[in-house]
Design a protein around this nucleic acid. Sequence first.
RNA 1: GCUCGGUUCGUAUAACGGUUAGUACUCAAGAUUCUCAAUCUUGCAAUAGGAGUUCGAUUCUCCUACCGAGUACCA
Length: 520
Amino acid sequence: MSRKTRVRFAPSPTGPLHMGGVRTALYNYLYAKQNGGDFILRIEDTDSHRFVPGAEEYIIEALSWCGIVPDEGVDASGKVVETPSERHPHAPYRQSQRKPIYRQYAEQLIANGFAYYAFDTADELAARRAEAEAAKQTFIYNQVTRKTLRNSLTLPAEETARLLETTTDWTIRFKMPENTVVVMDDLIRGHIEVNTDTLDDKVLWKRADELPTYHLANIVDDHLMEITEVIRGEEWLPSLPLHYMLYKAFGWEDTMPRFAHLSLLLKPDGKGKLSKRDGDKLGFPVFPLRWVNPEGEVSRGYREDGYFPEAFVNLLAFLGWNPGDDREILSMDELVQAFSLDRIVRSGARFSVEKAHWYNREYLRMKSTEELTGLFIPILEQNGIHREKDYVAAVVALTRERVTFVADFWTVAKCLFVAPDSYDEKDAAKFWTAENATLVGAAASWLCKDYSGPWTKVGIEEALVEHIRSQEWPMGKVMNALRLALTGAASGLGIADLAALLGPAEVAARVASAEKALMK
RNA sequence: GCUCGGUUCGUAUAACGGUUAGUACUCAAGAUUCUCAAUCUUGCAAUAGGAGUUCGAUUCUCCUACCGAGUACCA
């Protein structure tokens, strides 16, 4: 019997989702869609101390910007579903609201001898840890040390019963079996074996806030929500044996999901994984969307930096995966088709800004001039420019091969909307010499007054070049000086393109302004 | 420290025992152009090191080095 594919993305709302998290969500989504299954969003907010306001909304908005829409867990209005319905049978999808579910499972484990009550306080354990550290050792709550600690395994039954009644900071811990080899199979990494002697007795449930820890909540919810594959970050690999043991302890081995652990995204400069803290110090965003933390600190986002979501998704998909052929530009639909878990790369990937720029440029070029014009107009308006759409479209058509982001249109083509207010000093010194200035004046005057051909790029180009040649003027010098007068710098757009868009009156005016400003 | 992962040009990756080790980005040079960009062409550049297995190792095994993760009443 084969089950319907169901995968989940289960972030914890402790801050904005970073790009590594988005990639994990993306791979889950691609896998689900490819297999005709469901992609579920579940909020893992079992740590009551680390809740960050706005994080949950951020996560949903970021996924939505990327085109990753959960089938289950989030409703049409983008809210996490709290009450069960046909579409969302497992609601609530926020673990804090599933509180009552978990305790019985933890108790079931105790009843069957797979877990026990532990009464050591957090302070006591911290002290033990400090002690061990001072002796250059590591304290682990495991099958050896648990015999020397205060728990239902070492205490008399009456004492346990009394503590359960009278104290409120006890926990339920998993009783890790001794000297057992856990044999695991990871969809990406293959066969892995670990001896339980190297593992510790993890806390599963906390009496203090009556909430489970990740390990318990995760297994219980994945089981209840009928998850078939767990695709998550490599940081969970060391917990995999515990999770295997838990499925076994619950007797859920027959429906245990298959696991796939993704390698991490690394910092471009080498050391360590790309973390939330890196922020924009590295010269590129680590977050999909801009994030303002509760202290008011701003981190930039791909969206606000001008990336197209399709480009972002595409580049993220290729950070640790490839389709096995030479294609590099794939739409979401094509990614769904091409995706496969066994082509995921095992090693960690470093992000490259250049490649990211390249991706965005490719996507920008695939867009119509019409669409780009629509995106550019608001930027013009922010700069106080209001021009007719046809003119803007002509500018976009002319410069679209030169830009990476829509915002670049402004820097590249500003001179087509406003006259230069200054001239590059080096270029002026080189090209605006006394005799050359005279020639530029003459050339401009000829073009604007005497030239009677069509005022188009081609017409102007042919006539102007021809005229300069016939006068035996130095082509490069005159042209560059002309561009200096028109744009404020000697390098950039073609003279004929510039003139065609600017019109004869504006060309004449700008040359006159340059003559005035650059007169020695 | 211990446990578990990982290691191919600068970066992302391909080659799942036999290739002149391929591709893309970056970079460089040339072509083109009035300049710059774009474009086209060409080029630079890698199997971490050492043992083994094998007729033959990037590929399999072991050791070393390095990188990463985990080692919380965080996820």
